[in-house]
Every structure is written in structure tokens, then in C-alpha cells.
Amino acid sequence: MRPFRYERATDPDGAVALLSRSPQAAFLGGGTNLVDLMKLDVARPDLLIDIRGAVSGVIEELPDGGVRIGAGVSNSDLAAEPLIRERYPVVAQAVLNGASTQLRNVATVGGNLLQRTRCLYFQDITTACNKRQPGSGCSAIDGHNRDLAILGTSPDCIATQPSDLAVALAAVDATVQTVGPDGSRGIPLTELHRLPGSEPQHDNVLAHGELITAVDLPPLAMAARSRYRKIRDRASYAFALVSVAAAIDVADGQVRDVRIALGGVAHKPWRARRAEDLLRGGPATEDRLRRAAEAELAEAQPQSDNAFKIPLARNAIVRTVLDLVEAER
């Protein structure tokens, strides 16, 4: 690990001001990914600004019936919160399907959303990786890519976004609140992460110095019957090969509304809007679900080792939504 200075921020503006002055500085939340990457020499900050005292660690109900989650809330507290468990079980489930209790106790909500890809090559500084070292090449495209993306890839990067929480938040239309050098803004979760394109070094749209302060969940009645299904190589404590976050509202046999997001398939949580559009206004049958899932995955471009993710994602979508529909009957 390279030497660095350590400072504590006591409010968001102070944190942003500190960071904005230092091009190599980084915010430190729980540190469970940042410290990991610093040990690997992937992350090389010269200043850490501890923001745990600067952002809210509270979950509160909003006047419109939504919920605001402070960015400093631990993953464990988020999953245990009754408001979340009752109104957005998909969020609690997604969190609990990620990492271990030890990590969730320390990791923050903001940090969870900004954790970096677990692509093998990104984490090994002796190999080429455009995300880590722009222009060096992508080792994964002709290398081991079983875990990597099938949707929205570019010739420069096929990494996946690893956060389970982000997938669930994408499904329920969460908004990320930030404070940055240019003021504060709200960013829809689905627009926080970006596709790699020719600049895979940028995981997301945040500017240097922009700090996530909270995540807002809108009121969404059908989210009370939502579900997260994660498929992975171990029964626990492993990243997703494919995951599905889903919620559905069926009335009189017709799909009134549906939300589907996929994890493990792209550089961002993949909101399956095409599938959702196809499903609305018709019955929630296995056949229609299958066709909707296939339409969503029609443009998937598998790599040498991960073509299996296409049928896996299709089947996972169908099963997850069908289970919700059957539970509702």
C-alpha cells in the first residue's frame, strides 16, 4: 500500500471541498472494497477522507411515503430495517445475498453502489486492463471471462458491476442524492452507472469530489411483493453469475405494472425495460415471460466462456417473476 494521509470530514460540504482540492484523494466509507484495492495497488489515493461522520447513517420515511436511506447506513442496518423489509423486500434480500455479515456490518450503502468490478484482470496490476490503465488493452476479452458481461459491452471492456444492492435499487426506481463541487443533484439509480464504451475507467457519472449522501426510494406499492434471486457458483458468499430483481402488479389476470432488473450481465444494473414493456397489459404466463426475457436478451453478445448467461438470465427472469405471480394468487 502506498503512503497516504487520512482526514475526517464532519459534513458533506467539507468532505467535497477537501476532496476537490486533491486529484488523487478518495472518500473512505466502510473501506471494504477500497482498502482491498489499495492493498492490490489498484487504488492509489494519496489522501483518504473519512466520510462516515459526514453523511447520514439514518433511514427515514419521506412525506410521500417513500424512504430515504443515508449513504452512511451500513448494509446490515439497511437489510434489518423494518421499513425496507416490509415495503421493499427486494432491497433487503439483495443486500443479504451479497458478501458476508462481517462485510455488511462495515460496508456503507454509498460504498456498496460504488464498489468496483471483480474482473480478474482489473484486480491484477501485472495484466492489461483498460479500466485500470486506459489504453493498455482488455485481457478479459480473449481471457477468462466466464463471470463477465453479455449486455452493453464494448471492445474495450466487458466488466460487470458487482453490487447486488444496485440491481434491486434499479428495479424500484431509486434516486441517488449527491453533493458535489457544483452543488447537489438527484441521479436516477439507473443512470448512476454507465456502460463502458471507450472510457471504461469511469464506472459511473459522478464527478471527482461528488459524494453520495442518500438514496431515495419512491413509494411503490408493488415493491412490497418483490424478490431478488441470485445465481452463483457457491450457495453463499459469491458474486452473481446472474441475478434478477423483480416486482409485479397483476390485477384481473393482467400485468398492470412490472419491474425487472438484472445483475451480473453488464457494466451497470440492467433494467429490463423492453421485457417490462412487453409484459404490461397482458397475462403473466410463462410463455409471455419467456418471450419478454428473450426480447430483452436478444442483443446479448456472449464472450468465449459466458454464453450460458443468456439462457440462465432468461430462465431466472421467468422463474423469479412466475414465483411472484404464484405467491400473489
Partner: peptide, 12 residues
């Protein structure tokens, strides 16, 4: 709370 002490910076 249980935590992985290997990922926690002592100074923090």
C-alpha cells in the same frame, strides 16, 4: 459487531 479486521484501517 463482527467485522473483518483486515479491511479496517486502524486510524479510522
Amino acid at each position: 459487531r463482527r467485522a473483518n479486521s483486515c479491511l479496517a484501517l486502524a486510524v479510522a
